Amino acid sequence: MITKLKRLPPIHALSAFEAVARHGSFSSAAEELHLSQSAVSKQVRTLEEHTRSPVFLRHARGIELTSAGAALLQEIQPALAQLSSGIERIRQRQDANTVTVIATHAVSHYWLFPRVMAFNREHPEITVSIQSDNGMTPAVIEEYDFGILFGSGGWPGLDAQPLFAERVYPVCRPDLALPEHQTLQELKALPLIELDSSAWDCIDWVDWFAHFNEAYAPKPHGLKFNQVSLSYNAALEGLGVSLGWDFMVSQAVREGRLRRVGDFVYDSRKHDFLVHGIKEPLKRAAQTFKDWLS
């Protein structure tokens, strides 16, 4: 059921108000919006008529937000940003030579970005636009040409093509002084960089050791991060041993910036998949990108 919206002020009035508030100046806002200063002032007056409250205090030294204006700005800035992003995504999806992809931060940075650079060298006529969002869900995929989802596949309404398997193993900087050979018991005694994955679907050291039927309790006061990219960077800095996702760390291992610790590998038998909606056929540029990734 769609909730009926009450009468809203014109979008131009909201946009003018936001620009004036951000710049602290009617003239600067007018320059940004390519309008006259009087036109911007008129838009702000229209907004004040709708809110039945002044949104700016005007004085000799300039302007400042009223309490009502400050409250309104806090409400509309994220809404305008979301609206702008949504319109841009729709525009890009309709652009025959633009391909939009949404993925998590780690996948976007460590796996997708290098491949997009290589793809663009072969297909300079196609622009691949990446949206990085750790909060992505299958429900948002329809807004993009593609998404990259982690799991076992089988999402309703989505075509899913496996890209890479989840393989996780300990890594550290090569010059970190550690015993030459590590058993699971010895691994637990090393300076492990903890990962707090309570807010998202990701394994931590407790899960990793449990995969090998080994109990583990995090050390108190140890290093802990809530993102795999932060844990990865901590390992690069030599701060300890981190869980390393193969798609993130394999290149650093090959280049000698990291080394594997022990021979144990957690293979979850899950994958990251390239997914897209099946309601409409892929446009030519999107099909070219999908074929290239295959």
Rank of each mutant, 00 (worst) to 15 (best):
D196E: 05
S129W: 14
N120F: 12
P156L: 08
S28V: 05
C172Q: 08
H50N: 06
R61G: 15
V265A: 03
Q37L: 08
A177N: 13
V140P: 11
V206N: 02
L72C: 02
V228T: 11
L14H: 04
D267C: 02
F119D: 03
P138D: 07
R115I: 02
G157F: 12
D246V: 04
C172W: 07
W155R: 02
R89F: 00
R167K: 15
I102R: 15
L112M: 02
P281E: 01
Y216N: 10
H59G: 13
P138H: 04
D207T: 05
Q131I: 09
A29H: 09
A68V: 13
R58I: 13
Q43D: 11
L158K: 00
R22I: 01
P9I: 00
S294N: 08
D175E: 10
D95G: 05
R173H: 14
E18I: 15
Q287F: 03
E64K: 10
G154E: 09
G153R: 10
Q82K: 13
D201K: 12
I148Y: 02
T98F: 03
T46F: 09
A165D: 06
D272R: 15
K224E: 07
H105T: 12
V140C: 14
V206I: 10
F212L: 01
K224T: 08
L5W: 08
P191T: 00
V116A: 02
K279N: 14
L5G: 05
P114D: 08
Q94K: 15
C172S: 11
I148C: 04
L5N: 10
L47E: 02
G256M: 00
E48C: 08
E237D: 10
L8N: 09
